[in-house]
């Protein structure tokens, strides 16, 4: 019974999308960490991508809403800090969706990828002759790059 409730709660929470990148669900992102069922109700644990990520509040509300729509109550959302979120948690499906949305997925491999040579392929024309325009893009998790092939600027999901 509890296992069934837990699965239903997970499935409901997993439908919530990132308000900044609406093609990704919080499950794709690895932001959804755990769902536990106890006598006190359902508890959903999420982890921030960045310390100051302004989307966390909205994501928490959306989860409560999704659970209540699925008839699951009482539920509460908690934020956990450890282990720290990394872009390596992004699902394969998530990486593919990002690319289709026009955002280059993050290079793999944590810190080494961050400060080693960077080769990012343009999400539009796949040319790897690209350059970084700005370290910080439209949100904390993105940088702004430009393709020297097609000349278009594009967002890169930063390695974290």
């Amino acid at each position: 019974m509890n296992a069934d409730l837990q699965q239903r709660a997970w499935d409901a929470a997993a439908t919530v999308v990132d308000p900044e990148i609406p093609v990704l669900t919080i499950a794709d992102l690895g932001v959804l960490r755990a769902v536990t069922v106890s006598a006190a109700g359902v508890e959903v644990a999420i982890t921030p991508t960045y310390s100051g990520c302004p989307a966390m509040g909205v994501i928490g509300l959306e989860i409560e809403l999704a659970l209540s729509r699925a008839g699951i109550a009482p539920a509460r959302v908690v934020t956990v800090m450890a282990p720290a979120w990394t872009t390596d948690w992004l699902s394969e499906d998530g990486r593919r969706k990002l690319l289709e949305y026009g955002i280059a997925p993050p290079p793999r491999g944590g810190r080494r990828a961050l400060f080693g040579e960077e080769h990012v392929a343009c999400p539009r024309c796949a040319v790897t002759d690209t350059e970084r325009l700005a370290e910080f893009g439209s949100t904390s998790c993105k940088a702004l790059w430009r393709c020297l092939g097609c000349g278009e600027p594009f967002d890169v999901f930063k390695c974290h």
């Binding site: 921030p48 960045y50 310390s51 800090m81 450890a82 282990p83 720290a84 979120w85 990394t86 810190r111 961050l114 400060f115 370290e135 910080f136 930063k158 974290h160």
Partner: peptide, 12 residues
């Protein structure tokens, strides 16, 4: 736990 997040940010 706070350090593990902050470290990645300050590297940038």
């Amino acid at each position: 736990a706070i350090a593990a997040k902050a470290e990645k940010e300050t590297a940038y």
